[in-house]
């Protein structure tokens, strides 16, 4: 991969980490976690592991659903 895309996807991972740690609302934390996934998946694709990328893209929403089950209980 070239230098600029590498820097930008690394920036996305760092931004997502900062957002997940600093935000106080659980929903904003989940949105920042999705930003981390957006930064990691291009690195997986760049190494050529397309099967791993497909599996990750389908599994990440599943774990978000499981976390949302707890969020719904937490709010009410």
């Amino acid at each position: 991969m070239n230098l600029l895309p590498m820097l930008v996807f690394g920036l996305l991972v760092v931004l997502g980490t900062g957002g997940t740690i600093l935000e106080r609302d659980p929903f904003a934390k989940l949105i920042s976690l999705s930003l981390i996934a957006a930064g990691v998946i291009p690195f997986v694709v760049d190494r050529g592991y397309l099967d791993v990328a497909i599996a990750l893209a389908l599994i990440v929403p599943l774990s978000t659903f499981f976390l949302l089950m707890a969020c719904r209980r937490d709010r009410t």
Partner: peptide, 30 residues
Amino acid sequence: TYLVRIINLELPAWGLLLLMLAYNETLALL
């Protein structure tokens, strides 16, 4: 709260996944 701890626990999971990617462990990744 416990919920925030579980959400933050996703961060080391992504980090471990990136380390496995750095050493080319396909089966471990899946």
